[in-house]
């Protein structure tokens, strides 16, 4: 049982980790948490469903469509809810992205609502469960974890080794200096939001066969990703990934060994305890407040 719980914990955790990673990419560039992040996930999932199930297109085109959709949501969020308020207080920025999240939920209800209560997404590959000795692991879980880890590696390569990644890091580090060396800061800011939410789009397509799609799914997911990012220490990309996997595993172990209904709140109890004992999270550095 332990292995099965760990497998499903890792699968859920890799989804949280991808979403948290995108959240932190944006946070590092802007010091703002994008409260419409979960809606990028939800819309990408629904678009993938329409392309794959509704129109019968290939899985690959559904994946590309979903990533494009999520990136578009990210770029739109930057334009509508971040750039006009760039000099505003944190409260205004948080409320602007929260407002946009509610708007996007309404759009999803209009477009995809009324198809029964939830929209199921069929399994992508009907592979037999994988046996290793006595262990049986669901192939869907392996696909989710494998896909998520591959995405993280691609993202890390993009962020560390490419010109675009270096420009994104430079802009996050110091906007004025980046502008002085000729980086188009606004365009890079747009792209950062696009890439950040696109990571959630990949997570949505990977997770869709494990979960049902519904217009309000973004909210609970955002809280979990946010919790994962804070558990790892806000601002640390590796911390967000570790936090995401830990959250998923804690959830499943609680469901298996304590009580299945407790699985929904176990991560939150963990967060409360961790942050009370260590307010900076597991890998967080001291936050310097600009005076």
């Amino acid at each position: 049982m332990l292995v099965n719980l760990l497998a499903s914990g890792l699968a859920n955790g890799s989804v949280y980790a991808l979403v948290a990673l995108g959240l932190i990419v944006i946070y590092r560039a802007t010091t703002v948490i994008n409260f419409a992040h979960g809606e990028g996930f939800m819309l990408a999932g629904f678009l993938a469903w329409t392309l794959y199930v509704g129109l019968g297109l290939s899985y690959g085109s559904a994946l590309v469509g979903a990533i494009a959709m999520a990136a578009l949501v990210g770029i739109a969020t930057e334009r509508l809810a971040f750039r006009p308020l760039i000099r505003g207080s944190v409260v205004s920025l948080v409320l602007a992205t929260t407002g946009l999240a509610f708007l996007l939920r309404g759009v999803a209800r209009y477009l995809w609502g009324g198809k029964g209560s939830d929209v199921p997404f069929p399994p992508v590959f009907t592979v037999q469960a994988v046996r290793v000795g006595d262990l049986v692991v669901s192939s869907q879980h392996l696909i989710v974890v494998g896909g998520a880890v591959a995405t993280m590696l691609v993202f890390a390569a993009l962020f560390r080794c490419t010109r675009l990644g270096r420009m994104m890091r430079a802009t996050a580090e110091n906007q004025r200096a980046a502008a002085l060396v000729g980086i188009r800061v606004e365009r890079i800011s747009s792209l950062t939001w696009g890439v950040g939410v696109a990571l959630a789009g990949v997570a949505a397509v990977l997770a869709a066969p494990l979960t049902l799609l519904y217009p309000d799914m973004g909210g609970p997911l955002l809280i979990r990703a946010f919790a994962a990012a804070l558990l790892g220490g806000l601002g640390s990309l590796g911390g967000a990934v570790v936090g995401g996997f830990s959250l998923g595993i804690v959830e499943q172990l609680t469901a298996g060994y304590v009580d299945s209904s407790l699985a929904d709140v176990a991560p939150f109890l963990l967060i409360i305890v961790v942050l009370l004992l260590r307010p900076r999270g597991l890998f967080g550095r001291r936050v310097v407040v600009k005076m």
Binding site: I271, I272, L275
Partner: peptide
Amino acid sequence: LPALRLHGLYLAIVTLAFGEVTYW
């Protein structure tokens, strides 16, 4: 009480977590 120790977004997640636990 945690607000004495936590600021900004860290306080946000602890209070959101309290809300989730209450609802549960």
